[in-house]
Amino acid sequence: MKKNLVLGAVFAAAICVAQPAGAIDSTGGCGLGSMAWKGQSGIIPQVLAISTNHTFFNTVGVTLGTSGCDPNGRVTGGTGKMVLAVIENNMEQFAMDASAGRGETIETIAGILNVDSEKLGAAAQQNFAYLFTDENVEAVDLALKMMELAKA
């Protein structure tokens, strides 16, 4: 028991404590950076997340059937909902993959939409300026545009 006590005191800081419930504030929008602190609680990330512009999100989010940046659900729903979930939860990686025309998020979206990943990547890269109109672009907007590009 004594051994456990000493060892435990040191492990305490490091071993498998449940991750804090998703501290992301869905009122903060789902743009670039909104998910970067997911899982970290505290006042600073929430304050910063709230400063995000989110007017566009609320209206289109209803169309695709999501309630917002959903950090803790299961992968579920139809293709539209899944594409949105992948983009909004992997926004930072998706942005890079789109600009480079390849990557894991592109492969994943191509899989969901059942289209060729290389073609979708090329389309995303060529249409990067269309996808990312400015730095405050929202996930819903991107999901809709990616589905549009996949059809083309």
């Binding site: 743009g31 789109a98 600009s99 480079a100 290389e118 730095e135």
Partner: peptide, 20 residues
């Protein structure tokens, strides 16, 4: 952060090659 990210990726997207 958003400004910098956007600038870097916009520049990257103009190099039309998917090869890593």
């Amino acid at each position: 952060y958003r400004k910098k990210s956007f600038k870097l990726l916009s520049a990257r997207s103009k190099i039309a090659n998917q090869h890593q």
